Computed example of a mutant assay.
Amino acid sequence: MSKITPDPPVSPLHRHDKNSDRVFAHYNLPPVEPPEPYKLPESLFQIRADARSEESLTTAYELLESAAATAYESVENLSGANRKVVLGVVHLIELAKALVDSALDKRGVDHP
Rank of each mutant, 00 (worst) to 15 (best):
M1K: 07
M1P: 03
M1D: 02
M1C: 04
S2A: 09
S2P: 15
K3R: 14
I4S: 14
I4F: 11
I4C: 11
I4Y: 08
T5W: 01
T5C: 09
D7Q: 13
D7P: 12
P8A: 03
P8I: 02
S11F: 11
P12R: 02
L13S: 03
D17Y: 08
K18I: 14
K18S: 14
K18W: 09
N19H: 11
N19W: 05
S20A: 03
S20C: 04
D21C: 05
R22G: 03
V23Y: 06
A25M: 06
H26G: 06
P30G: 06
P31A: 01
P31W: 00
V32P: 00
E33C: 02
P35M: 00
P35F: 00
P35Y: 00
P37R: 01
Y38F: 06
L40Q: 07
L40F: 06
E42Q: 05
L44K: 05
L44A: 05
Q46E: 09
Q46A: 07
I47L: 10
R48P: 02
R48V: 00
R48L: 04
A49Q: 03
A49K: 09
D50P: 05
D50M: 04
R52D: 10
R52T: 14
E54D: 12
E54Q: 15
E54C: 09
E55P: 00
S56I: 13
L57N: 11
T58K: 09
T58A: 11
T58G: 12
T58Y: 02
T58E: 13
T59K: 04
T59S: 08
A60E: 03
A60S: 13
A60R: 04
A60C: 05
Y61F: 15
E62I: 04
E62T: 12
L63A: 09
L64T: 12
A68M: 14
A68D: 15
A69G: 14
A69C: 06
T70V: 13
E73P: 09
E73H: 13
S74L: 15
E76V: 15
E76G: 14
S79T: 14
S79H: 11
G80P: 11
K84F: 01
V85T: 14
V86Y: 04
L87Y: 02
L87C: 03
L87N: 06
L87I: 02
H91R: 13
L92I: 07
L92E: 14
L92N: 13
I93A: 12
E94C: 11
L95P: 00
K97V: 07
A98C: 05
A98Y: 05
L99Q: 15
L99F: 11
L99S: 15
V100H: 02
D101V: 03
A103T: 01
L104N: 07
D105G: 10
K106I: 10
R107T: 09
V109W: 08
V109G: 03
D110I: 04
H111F: 13
H111L: 15
H111W: 11
